[in-house]
Computed example of a mutant assay.
Amino acid sequence: MTDDSGSRGPSKQRRASAGISRAELEDRVRARREQFEEANERITARSGRNLLSAVAIGLVLGGLMFVSLLFVTELFLVFVGLIACIGTLELVGALKRSGRYVPVIPSVISAAGVSIASFYAGASGQWLTLLAGTGLVLVWRLGMLANPAHRADAKQLLRDLAAAVLVQTYVVFLASISILLVAQPDGRWWVLAFMLVVICVDTGAYAAGLNFGKHPMAPRISPKKTWEGFAGALLVALVAGVLLSIFMLHQPWWFGLIFGAVLTLTATFGDLAESLLKRDMGIKDMSTWLPGHGGFLDRLDSMLPSAAAAYVLFIVFS
């Protein structure tokens, strides 16, 4: 007879060992996941953002813009034009919740028209279409006074008209500037460069503010924003500006310092301006288009004024 107890013994030991290893592995994975979730909750509490969602949304939006800029410029027009329309809907909806009525249909028509005109007709087409679109929105609102449901006193009507101009200026005009820039010779590289610098500004401010932030910059407007975060944003933006200036824009290194410093100011201003706007309207987020992060305007607030600054720098230095 063959004694196979010896062969079965090691096999059982291996299975037991494998079972213990698997259990230990599951325990370790569970512990790491709990630690990560706790760390993410602490970061969210300090910064006001969910790190995983912010990174995921940033990668998706950035990837779409990157692909459209490098391969098919017309896709950038479609992408930014769509964002302009969505951003217009967001701001119109937020203004409505705060008691200001802006007609939706002409506002979106203007956003689409200005985006297309900026790409195919240049600055003159952009301005003419913007003026025509703004006029359409204002006349539409005045025409709605014939409907008793939309009648208002003089003060309320002026507030509505001012809100309509705000939508066209803040969202439609500023968003179309990036389209205007990308249509210029080598403009796509300038668009890509300014977006990368703004991303560096947001990342530097986030990291520095999270680790070193102690002195609030504007506590009544944005309690999470600190001077330490601003310093970190400026440092990262200057480095990124110099590198992009030399290797992407083919400008002297000192232009990169100007590029990084200006975009740090405009990105910070855009963030604070939207925070002030939301505080004035008494809302936390512009919309719920991006679950857990509000709307597109909440994620692109620093990009909008930075596009205007990048276009001015392009005109002056290129």
Rank of each mutant, 00 (worst) to 15 (best):
G204Q: 08
I179P: 11
L181R: 03
G187Y: 00
Y120T: 03
A152T: 05
Y170A: 05
A117Y: 11
V137E: 02
D202Y: 05
L196V: 10
L161N: 03
S118K: 04
V114R: 12
I199E: 10
Y206S: 04
A205T: 00
I105Y: 13
I109F: 15
L181N: 04
L128N: 00
I177M: 09
G213M: 04
A149I: 04
F230D: 00
V201C: 10
P106M: 06
V171D: 02
F119T: 03
S118H: 04
A175Q: 07
Y206A: 06
Q126R: 08
L142M: 14
L192D: 01
W190Y: 04
A162R: 04
M217L: 15
A149W: 02
A162S: 15
S124H: 07
W189E: 13
V198M: 13
V137C: 03
V172N: 12
W189P: 00
L174V: 08
L161D: 02
V114T: 08
A149P: 00
G122Q: 05
V172Y: 05
V197L: 15
P106R: 07
G135Y: 03
V114Q: 12
R151H: 06
I179L: 12
F230Q: 01
S124K: 10
G209D: 03
D160H: 08
D186V: 09
T226R: 08
P185E: 12
T169Y: 09
